[in-house]
């Protein structure tokens, strides 16, 4: 397996984490995302016409989009079915719902981080405000889950939905978005960081 990877990418970290959780080995192909913008080069656009990371290759399969890669890896390599509960339609629906939500976190929280860390030219105030709107929804949901004795997004056990929503929530501070005002989110982040195989990417400081 080969993962086209950027060390500072939270979307790549989603894939790196699931690989670790499932004890899978994978070659990392580093892409000069910054400052080289290699992901927009003609050569890379052949690999992913959207010019985005991550991209995974496994045998003849080439997949883009972190969430799609998580679905594939979990379905194929997690025999327990915990990470992607394919035999439980309701759970599957909830997982898909939060996978879509993860995309919105990327569009807001990650955008603010790209502005602050890599100097991207975008409306950072709007990105931060929109991220807060999402985090309020996430906070309410996680608090509700806690009342039901559940600590994960889609049910009693962690799924790829938690993986997909984790990095850009944990890295929100890099983009000037304070998540300390969301106690249930903070508890969920710490909970997540205690999963066996978890490791930080730069910008995260979770200690076992």
């Amino acid at each position: 397996m080969k993962l086209y990877d950027y060390v500072l990418s939270g979307n790549c970290h989603k894939v790196r984490l699931l690989l670790k959780f499932l004890d899978l080995t994978c070659d990392l192909e580093p892409v000069d995302f910054f400052p080289g913008r290699e992901h927009k080069s003609p050569v890379f656009l052949q690999i992913n016409p959207l010019g985005q990371l991550p991209v995974l290759e496994d045998g003849d399969l080439r997949l883009r989009d972190a969430q799609a890669i998580l679905v594939y890896l979990a379905h194929k390599y997690d025999a327990s079915g915990q990470w992607y509960p394919m035999n439980d339609p309701e759970a599957l629906g909830r997982v898909a719902q939060w996978l879509a939500f993860a995309e919105n976190i990327t569009a807001t929280s990650s955008a603010a981080r790209l502005h602050d860390v890599l100097g991207y030219n975008l409306d950072v105030d709007a990105a931060r405000a929109d991220a807060h709107t999402l985090f309020r929804v996430l906070e309410d949901h996680l608090a509700h889950q806690e009342f039901n004795g559940q600590h994960w997004l889609a049910g009693p056990l962690p799924t790829i939905a938690d993986i997909a929503c984790f990095p850009y929530t944990a890295l929100a501070g890099d983009g000037g978005i304070d998540t300390f005002i969301y106690p249930a989110i903070e508890r969920w982040l710490h909970h997540f960081s205690r999963l066996r195989g978890f490791y930080n990417m730069p910008g995260m400081n979770y200690f076992a």
Binding site: Y6, V7, L8, P30, V31, F34, G173, P202, G203, N205
Partner: peptide, 22 residues
Amino acid sequence: NSDTDLLHFQQNIFLQDRIILE
């Protein structure tokens, strides 16, 4: 190591520092 390997190595270090400094 390729130039990209070196960039990744160094950017990893810099971003670890950034969160502390900020």
